[in-house]
Write a protein that binds this DNA or RNA. Structure first.
Lengths: 198, 198
DNA sequence: GCCGACTCTGCGGATATCCACAATAGCCGC
DNA sequence: GCGGCTATTGTGGATATCCGCAGAGTCGGC
């Protein structure tokens, strides 16, 4: 189980939430400010974020925006004491996972956090697969990439040769290099890899 | 441009919204109750829904649930005068497109509705394509479907013949029937069709 | 019983793809 | 300049796929 990151400038609340989650075997890290978390965040930071909206300094919403801009995909659950519908709607439409008003129901919050952690874990697994794929893609030369795209588009070697203005033989060479580098044996497998099919 | 369906039990509001949208060239249909719309709704009803939460009889939220249960995918924008965050969060997480508090800004609401209408139109186009695909899939025999699945899984004819315990020639026959019925020329195209690739 | 489907199979040939061996040429870095 | 990478092409042969022609068995409907 990965970590729940609690960002709240109220130490009492951090402690209370920390107790709640640790009692449910959810590892917790507390951050006293948005700035502190933003500073510490790295692309490989895993888990989920429990984020107070109203804080001294940078607000939870602004932290969310900054993290999004940095490419953070961690699920974010907002905590707020002020029932502001437009803010909630805006946050959810930007991709926040949840928006919870204080006072909240402990069990419900824990459930939502656990869901979010599971989601993050799955997402990271998917992305790990994609990263391996990206690494293999990066080993292709320009020409190989061009050929690969046409292969995946369903073109026959003959047509590819025409479109690129090279001989069929050359297409075959690039094609087999692509298959080798991408570790597939057929055009169909390659297509499935690139289109992210089941 | 498809129709905006306004469901509100307050005739004055329906009229006002009707005026607003008609002045922006958005076709409008008004419904005096959730029941009335639910009754009239058909799977091919197009456009988007502007839905008051609080109404006599069935509430907007309940209408939303009922429509979802019927398989309705029309984008829904909720209108509410009561800033209730949990309701907004719940509605959005169930798939509502937006949640707007009264009083609202006219231009903003119009923009959101136009976005929603465009989204619905695109979605219907995609689904029309899927329907054609489903129709073609339905013309396949069991055997053809089996062969198709293995082809799309990247197996060679020889392997497919082994797995199904039939001769390669027979696999070839089924395979070419599949290609013909699905109107593709290569296994890659078929794979893209079925995995819904770009 | 006949007809139409679906399924199965074989033969042979046209195309397409896979692959090893061999070679030329440009570009870049050591 | 030499070695390595990339891109290019050729020959020739092994496999695989595509396709028409021909035939056969089963099953269900008219």
């Amino acid at each position: 189980m990965t970590t729940l990151h609690i960002v709240d400038d109220d130490e009492a609340i951090r402690d209370a939430l920390g107790w709640l989650f640790q009692s449910r075997n959810v590892p917790v890290a507390g951050w006293p400010s948005a700035e502190a978390f933003l500073e510490a965040w790295r692309p490989d930071t895993a888990g989920c974020l429990l984020l107070d909206i109203r804080m001294e300094g940078m607000s939870g919403l602004e932290l969310f925006d900054r993290l999004l801009a940095k490419g953070c995909r961690m699920p974010v659950i907002f905590l707020t004491g002020h029932g502001d519908v437009p803010i909630a709607v805006g946050a959810l439409k930007k991709g926040a996972r949840d928006f919870v008003e204080k006072p909240f129901n402990d069990n419900e919050l824990v459930d939502r956090v656990i869901d979010a952690l599971a989601f993050d874990a799955e997402q990271r697994e998917r992305e790990a697969g994609q990263a391996g794929l990206a690494a293999r893609l990066a080993t292709l030369t320009q020409r190989e990439r061009q050929v690969m795209e046409l292969v995946v588009a369903g073109r026959l070697n003959k047509v590819i040769a025409d479109e690129l203005g090279i001989s069929m033989r050359t297409v075959e060479v690039h094609r087999s290099h692509v298959f080798e580098k991408m570790r597939v044996k057929t055009a169909v497998e390659l297509t499935r890899l690139l289109t992210g099919a089941s």
